[in-house]
Design a protein around this nucleic acid. Structure first.
Length: 152
DNA sequence: GCCAACGTTGGC
DNA sequence: GCCAACGTTGGC
């Protein structure tokens, strides 16, 4: 069992969107970064804990808790010609991009990036490091527990 | 909208 | 395999 932080732009999929989806679940489409893909492909298991993070918005931060609900499988958008996420080098026989499914556990208060930066316990979190742009990052179990305690 | 940081691409 | 150019991310 591992823990993750996954960024989503709320203008694309927000925590409230997730809450309104069938099964409160979404395919985590559009990952086009090898490191992030490899996390999904090689390490994510059903039941892994996920912090659902709102990025590129007015108040970035953790907006809810979710879990991995389906193992990685080919991202369908890579095959749709003309789509933003189309990849001409990907074929159904040899897909390049994958996604897991993520299911809502519960919406939380918005724990802002600003607040996250105030806790010495989180000083080493990947998301808080300078220049971090990776949209999926592992979360240390201690960090997971600490953030959960702050969210209670 | 700016821009720092970082990933990817492609010429050599 | 190097590295300059370019594209993207995402906080501010």
């Amino acid at each position: 069992m591992r823990y993750w932080l996954m960024k989503s732009e709320p203008s694309d999929v927000s925590i409230d969107d997730l809450a309104g989806f069938p099964n409160q679940s979404v395919d985590w489409y559009g990952i086009r970064n090898y490191q992030a893909r490899n996390f999904m492909r090689d390490q994510m298991k059903v039941g892994d804990g996920v912090f659902f993070y709102h990025s590129n918005c007015d108040v970035p931060g953790i907006a809810g808790i979710a879990e991995v609900s389906k193992l990685a499988y080919p991202d369908r958008l890579q095959f749709i010609k003309g789509h933003k996420y189309y990849d001409e080098k990907a074929t159904p026989e040899n897909p390049r991009w994958l996604n897991v499914d993520v299911k809502l556990v519960r919406k939380t208060r918005l724990l802002s990036l600003k607040e996250l930066r105030e806790y010495p316990e989180l000083i080493n979190m990947r998301i808080l490091q300078r220049g971090n742009r990776l949209s999926i990052t592992p979360v240390d179990p201690k960090e997971w527990d600490f953030i959960n305690s702050v969210l209670k």
